[in-house]
Design a protein around this nucleic acid. Structure first.
Length: 409
DNA sequence: TCTGGGGTCCTAGGACCC
DNA sequence: TCTGGGGTCCTAGGACCC
């Protein structure tokens, strides 16, 4: 691992990761908050989405319940997320990446892999390119980022983590194991809480420990896929290819929406109404994406956080909210819950295919329902007049103040 | 007032077909 | 009559990532 002028020969994969992205964007125009603890996070039962480095110094971490974060750092300024702004900044950053190379794999709003193999003659070494990118983003967006440079995506990702904040780390091929092996097992991509506990039970604390454990032992403890994967990554394996986003003709695998209620409920009517809201959002997003799907999955989380799913595969694919909601509602009713306290409900549709090329057959004797046309008309009206103009009648009670289970304070 | 919302992939068992 | 494997689809749950 090198932080000075490094040997980046043969390293063409960059992982660029914005530093405390949401917090940085939310405070970049607020001089008075620079250098102070800031938490971006949400709402009533929300979690931390992003924390400034000053807040992290007090132990605040992303995904931590907001309540705990406030307790750890009561002096922090708490800001609500504004995803429209985050998305706009993200899009601009990704465009900057594409000025450097067309091979950009966007991983989320705040990180991407780049392969700069084809850019060296024009722009110099990977290290030069990283510093150029960082300067441009700091200049144009007034936020900082960190870059990891390596021969695999996994090494580049771990390298960018070591580079934070506001730095660059190169891991040359020859130094891969020297870089990896001292790190804790949690650093490996694919090791979360459960797997980390299992590894530590085996007496494995570092990535080097994993590397020197036979793959078969790991596979027996963690399953064939995870075991093989971790052993490979521990020796510096993993993908050497950056995939420039998913091809257009390959749709997402699923589209879903779920909601945590402001307060747990045992009222089936409330759940069914929230399922309609979710189904409406899901169907609209499916139509926008031009996909239809066959499998409807209901998700219910109870007050003790246990979560169940129920799914059913339809004979014909759909993108119609009324059908998705009807199926989710049937699955919910079939649970036969008796006064169970429910915390969250949601709907997901999978088995997605391109709407334009998926043949749609009317079942013999079935008449066209007209719902598809009606919802398309709704899409058009929302496009013209805004979301408030059009929504299912049973969701309109909100406006009269009858609904209080969902809205933010 | 503990624990969001968007996803992906893997596993395992049963049904069903060849 | 008994035994058998492979492949695919479906369902439920779980781990993980950002």
């Amino acid at each position: 691992m090198t932080t000075g002028r490094p040997d980046d020969a043969g390293c063409t994969i960059l992982h660029v990761d914005m530093d405390a992205f949401y917090a940085s964007v939310a405070t970049r125009d607020r001089q008075e908050l620079q250098g102070t603890p800031v938490i971006v996070g949400g709402g009533h039962r929300g979690v931390v989405l992003s924390a400034s480095y000053e807040a992290r110094r007090h132990g605040v971490r992303s995904a931590m319940p907001m309540m705990r974060a406030r307790r750890l750092c009561p002096q922090a300024t708490v800001l609500a997320p504004d995803f429209e702004v985050f998305s706009a900044v993200s899009a601009a950053v990704m465009e900057t990446f594409r000025d450097v190379t067309p091979v950009v794999q966007v991983m989320s709003l705040d990180e991407a892999f780049l392969d700069v193999a084809g850019s060296a003659r024009r722009l110099g070494s990977a290290w030069d390119i990283a510093e150029e990118l960082r300067a441009r983003i700091a200049d144009e967006q007034r936020i900082t980022c960190s870059v990891g440079i390596a021969t695999t995506t996994h090494l580049a990702k771990l390298a960018s983590r070591r580079a934070k904040p506001d730095g660059v780390v190169v891991v040359p091929r020859a130094e891969a194991t020297a870089f990896l092996h001292p790190l804790e097992v949690e650093e490996l991509w694919g090791v979360g809480e459960t797997t980390a506990t299992a590894l530590r039970r085996l007496g494995l604390a570092t990535i080097g420990d994993i590397a020197h454990t036979p793959a078969l032992i790991l596979q027996r403890a963690l399953g064939p896929a995870v075991g093989a994967q971790l052993h490979d990554l521990a020796w510096g394996g993993g993908s050497t290819t950056v995939v420039p986003r998913r091809s257009v003709d390959e749709p997402d695998r699923s589209i879903g929406s779920d909601t945590t209620y402001r307060r747990d409920t045992d009222d089936p009517a409330v759940v069914l109404r929230e399922l309609l809201r979710s189904a409406t959002m899901v169907a609209a997003r499916m139509r926008r994406a031009g996909v239809v799907g066959r499998t409807v999955t209901l998700r219910v989380r109870f007050s003790d956080f246990t979560t169940i799913t129920r799914s059913r595969t339809l004979r014909e694919p759909t993108d119609v909210a009324v059908q998705i909601h009807a199926e989710a509602g049937r699955l919910f009713t079939a649970l036969g819950l008796q006064r169970a306290r429910i915390r969250l409900s949601g709907v997901r549709v999978s088995g997605l295919t391109d709407a334009a090329t998926t043949p749609r057959q009317l079942v013999l004797g079935e008449r066209a329902s007209g719902w598809s046309e009606a919802e398309r008309a709704m899409d058009a009206a929302i496009g013209r007049y805004g979301r408030a103009a059009v929504q299912p009648a049973s969701l309109l009670v909100d406006r009269q103040g009858l609904r209080s289970d969902h809205e933010e304070p």
